[in-house]
Structures are given as structure tokens and as C-alpha cells.
Design a protein around this nucleic acid. Structure first.
Lengths: 220, 220
DNA sequence: TGTACATCAGTGAACGCGCGTTCACTGATGTAC
DNA sequence: TGTACATCAGTGAACGCGCGTTCACTGATGTAC
């Protein structure tokens, strides 16, 4: 299938595409998913969108600018997905954090192209302010959750928020990268990535002195 | 600088390179370190080695075969580095595991090209039996360490070896990927990747019920 | 020790290909009056 | 409501480039006798 001339219902069909910018983004996502962030070219994205190779230059300065835009959109969606899973900590912070972990892995699996662009394409966060902001906002969702968890502890036992945030992020990213997607998922594991992450976080929280309520799920 | 015709002391200098295979590997490492696994081409590796573009075909069927060989060598070195850090668990398993964590991060940092080829180039482990074996052997070093740690626990409290191995691997890889190298290391962190990893592992071990001896270092 | 010869590891020219990028252009759209 | 015109968003042809790969070749090396 091709995304050409699909600028919404009854979009214009003639000389003008009508929604080329979006179509190029979609093409890039498809190509990145197939061949990785490096295996996508401006020319091929144009072909996918059913447009001449010069057309993309009306919307992006170059290939990099398109990639950065993909990564930025990825962080936006990532933030939304995490925030939805967190659901303001309902019914309790432990259950909500657990849900967020699953959402993290699910995002990496179902949106490999976004995930690649965000974390594996080698785009520095300084590439654009919007990109940096997007990444910050996504991380902030996790940090908020961690703050809420920490708030349940006696003051003198509380770990540093940022350290704990980075720990949870790192183990989530590690599991997603190593076991969560495509080929790597083929590794024979004793448990699903979701269970692996859940167990890791429970053990980690236990190690910090949290008493995890039973609604947070059971470690495998 | 160029690696051409450096086949050891007083290598042959004329028509034959003498050590082209090694020179191509070195060129690939240099190029991968500079531009990522995708930004390395057969032709450029040949140029680096001071040789015609057709020459590499005497040693590798194609670009992929070279990349796979780089990844395989990477796992071999990785195994050696981890095993050396582990040092058969001396003076005790906790201190040795801690050392291994630092060695893990150090490897990712000092050998970014190997690390990329091993984990980020998208080479499936089935690409070659040697590659698969190399990866297995590297992981086995970590598993052995974990087994030794677990053996210090009362039988009824012991966690599954493989689960614990994968947890430690995942958090190490997560920290290395997100914070350990090049650009990503620029993120402003409250602590070094080494300290971050050490703290994570200590908290995790604590969560499993380990009583960590003071020689294993202090969490930050 | 010398010679003939097989094998090995390179050369260098050539090819087709797809990419990135530019250019003058043109069809479509929207707006002022 | 109609018309003139500016602007926008495409076209398509062209370019130079580097890559991957093949090919007949040749210089260097090693070995049998």
C-alpha cells in the first residue's frame, strides 16, 4: 500500500498532494520500521508518497530535518501513552507504575520506528528545541510517577527522585532494547519482557524499602 | 592516519598488503565509531586500508560478513573484559560483580564501535554460529557471577538465576545506551553512569534479600 | 641451490544504480477588488 | 459573482557522486623437484 494522496477524506487529488508533509512522515515511519533509521532515504520516502524526488524539499530542509521531526512526534506520542497508562496514579501508585512499564514496552514493540528514531538514530537532543522539550516531557511523566511513589515513604527513607527515575527508565529501556522487539524478541526467555520488567521493578522497590500493595500484581 | 600496509613489524610492502583482513576490521571499527554501523561502507573501508575497492572481496563475501565478524570479535573481547573484571569472584562475589558492572560500562564507552556492532547494528544472532556462540559466552560470564552470588543465599530465598542475570544485563545495557556514551553522556546526570549502575544493583540485591558486604562499595 | 609452476592476493577499469540536490517550470489555490 | 493575480506546492529533467560488484589481469609467494 501507499500513502499517496491520502490527505484525509476526499482530499485533493490533482497536481497538489494536499497532505504531503504527513505522508512523508508516514513513509519515513514505514521505511524505518522495515530497515532501521539509517535505511531510509529522502528519495524513497518521496516515492512512497507518490511524489517527485524534489517535492519533499518544500517541507523539510533535508533528510535530517525529517528524521528529527519523526523523533519529536515519537516523544509526543510516547508522553501521551505513558501519561494515559499512569492515569494520575489510579487506583494506586504501584499499580499505575506497573501499567506504565507495560505501556513502555508496548510502545517500543508497536512503534519500533518511533522508538528507533527517538533512541537509536543517534540524533542529539540539541538537534532542535522541540525535540529536547518532547524528550523532557516524556521523562517528566515517569518522574512524576516516581515522586508519587516516594511520597508514600517515610521521609528519612526516601531515595533521590532523579536517581530512581533514571533507574526505572534504564531497566525499561534495557529490556525493550534487548528483548522487547523484533529479532531480539526471538531470544528464548524464561518469561515475557513484561513479566521480566515487572519483577525487576518490584525487586527494586523492595530494595528501597517499599511495601508493595498486592494490587500491583505478582512477580513471576 | 591509515592502517594500510601495517601488517606487523616489517610486513611486506609491495603488491600484497600482507594483513588486509585485519586492516579492514580496523577500518570498519574506526568508521563505525565515527558514523555508526550504518555509516560504514565496503568501499570506504578499502580506501582506509589503502587498497582497491575490489580487494576486500578476497576476504569477505560482502559488507554484512565483515560487520558480523566485527560483532563476533566484539563479543570475544567483551567476554574477556568481563571475565577479567570478575576475576573468579575475588575477593568476594559482591565486589567482583561491582567491578564487572564498571567493566561493562567501560567497554561500551571505550569500544563504541564494537558495542554498536554487537547490540545496535541489527545483526540477528543467527547470522552466524560463531556470533551466537560469542554472545552466549559473554552472557555466561555474567550468569556464572550471578550463580555465585545466589549460592551465598539460603536455598529457600534464591531467585531464578536466569531472571537475575537478565535483570542485571538489562540495567547495565540500559545505562550504557542512555547515559554511557558520546552524545548521550552529555545529559546532565546527578551521578556518573558507574555510580548509577552500582546503586541500582545494590538496591536490586537488597530487594532480593542479599546482605551486601561493605567491601562492595557504597551507593551514592 | 636453482628453476618451473601453481596459487594467492592484489589491481584498475568498468558497469549500473540510487541518492541528494538544483533548476526553471507549471498547475492549483486563494484572495482582492 | 467574476476576474486578475500572487502565492503555493508540485513536476521532471538533469547533474555529480559514491557505492557495490564483476572482470580479466598480474605481481608476489611458496613449493616440488
Amino acid at each position: 500500500m501507499s500513502w499517496s494522496r491520502q490527505g484525509g477524506r476526499s482530499g485533493p487529488r490533482g497536481y497538489h498532494h494536499g497532505n504531503l508533509k504527513e505522508a512523508l512522515i508516514r513513509a519515513a515511519l514505514e521505511l524505518i520500521a522495515q530497515k532501521g533509521p539509517a535505511g531510509f532515504t529522502f528519495a524513497e520516502a518521496a516515492r512512497w508518497a507518490g511524489v517527485s524526488p524534489a517535492a519533499p524539499y518544500r517541507h523539510f530542509r533535508d533528510r535530517d530535518e525529517l528524521l528529527i521531526d519523526v523523533a519529536r512526534r515519537g516523544f509526543d506520542q510516547f508522553e501521551a501513552v505513558l501519561a494515559r497508562a499512569w492515569d494520575d496514579g489510579r487506583p494506586d501508585a504501584f499499580a499505575a507504575l506497573d501499567r506504565m512499564g507495560k505501556a513502555y514496552l508496548q510502545f517500543a514493540r508497536s512503534e519500533p520506528a518511533y522508538y528507533s528514531a527517538m533512541f537509536e538514530a543517534g540524533i542529539p537532543p540539541e538537534a532542535s528545541p522541540e525535540l529536547r522539550d518532547g524528550a523532557e516531557r516524556a521523562l517528566a511523566v515517569l518522574r512524576t510517577a516516581v515522586e508519587r511513589l516516594i511520597a508514600t515513604m517515610p521521609v528519612r527513607d526516601r531515595p533521590p527522585v532523579l536517581m530512581m527515575t533514571l533507574h526505572i527508565w534504564a531497566v525499561s529501556h534495557g529490556i525493550a532494547s534487548l528483548f522487547g522487539r523484533g529479532d531480539s524478541a526471538r531470544r528464548s526467555l524464561p518469561m515475557s519482557p513484561e513479566d521480566l520488567l515487572e519483577a525487576a521493578v518490584l525487586i527494586y522497590l523492595n530494595g528501597l524499602g517499599f511495601t508493595v500493595s498486592p494490587t500491583a500484581g505478582r512477580p513471576a
